[in-house]
Design a protein around this nucleic acid. Sequence first.
DNA 1: GAATTTACGTCAGCCTTGTTGACTTTCCAA
DNA 2: TTGGAAAGTCAACAAGGCTGACGTAAATTC
Lengths: 164, 164
Amino acid sequence: MAETPGGENLLFLTDEQLRKGIEAMFFAYRGFTADPDRILEGMDYGRAHHRAIHFIHRSPGTTVSNLLSILGVTKQSLNRVLRTLIEDGLVRSEKGKVDARERHLHLTDKGQMLERELSDAQRARMRAAYRAAGPQAVAGFRQVLEAMMDPEMRRQYNRLKEGG
Amino acid sequence: MAETPGGENLLFLTDEQLRKGIEAMFFAYRGFTADPDRILEGMDYGRAHHRAIHFIHRSPGTTVSNLLSILGVTKQSLNRVLRTLIEDGLVRSEKGKVDARERHLHLTDKGQMLERELSDAQRARMRAAYRAAGPQAVAGFRQVLEAMMDPEMRRQYNRLKEGG
DNA sequence: GAATTTACGTCAGCCTTGTTGACTTTCCAA
DNA sequence: TTGGAAAGTCAACAAGGCTGACGTAAATTC
């Protein structure tokens, strides 16, 4: 019989059990972002910069509009972030060769260094959580998260997952 | 052998697998907040109001400072949210009888109605995800999330989990 | 070849939700 | 009884969302 850490039966989903899941998401997401937030505070950057850096690292050469659809923010909002990252020499933006309207984004060496620092911290926490919970739990974790996404986000997620 | 939806072995945690977990958290959290956000847009409220309403509902009569430690924001930030909720008649705040410095918070009937609407939507998504992933996955999901929290947050989470 | 569309950038201004600093009221302990 | 700590409030500022309007260069369509 499948059980939660608390030990209750999960075949019937009571509001109580669902509420625990909701609160678990809330508290866990705080932990999830805590380490990068700590690293970035003091620099002029925030969570928005982290997200941009993450996905540029993830898909080097990606275009601005592709990044927009992944991040789900407006171009004005993304542009503010990108401008500072480019000015500070963390991101390089170059005109597309096949389509010169596009801007292809790459991390500079300096950008790679910050990305490394941020993702090391985030991975360390994720690794610790995975180890504590065990491989079986990890599989379930990913399944539930994937099922929780909006279809459009799931498409983005899977495209990254495979393509990368 | 434990496997992810993608099918890879999870006994050895590669950076690649950890990165997928990180991105799953990112996209899933968007889904997690999407429905309440939609409901609240148009009203004068946002995610901060939702959080306050959730935890007041959860622990009726809780004090402002207790809420502060759960939400992890400054009291000034929380106060702004509470003020509008009280003005709009969703939350009732009453002076403590034993300690008159404290304010005990309750949802009014109107507040209960909004809480219901928000949590119905959020539970519906959670329920769908749980059903899609299955009971075993749900147990793993909760285990990993719990392991991902900061110790202080885990204390808060467990106190709510049991005590409630 | 002209008109339209696309990709990107920018300016201006607004809102939510975080922050710090300064303040009052209340409680408690020296 | 007085001084410090705790609870809560008010004011002002910053980050990072948002919309709307506009400009430019390149691609595409007619």
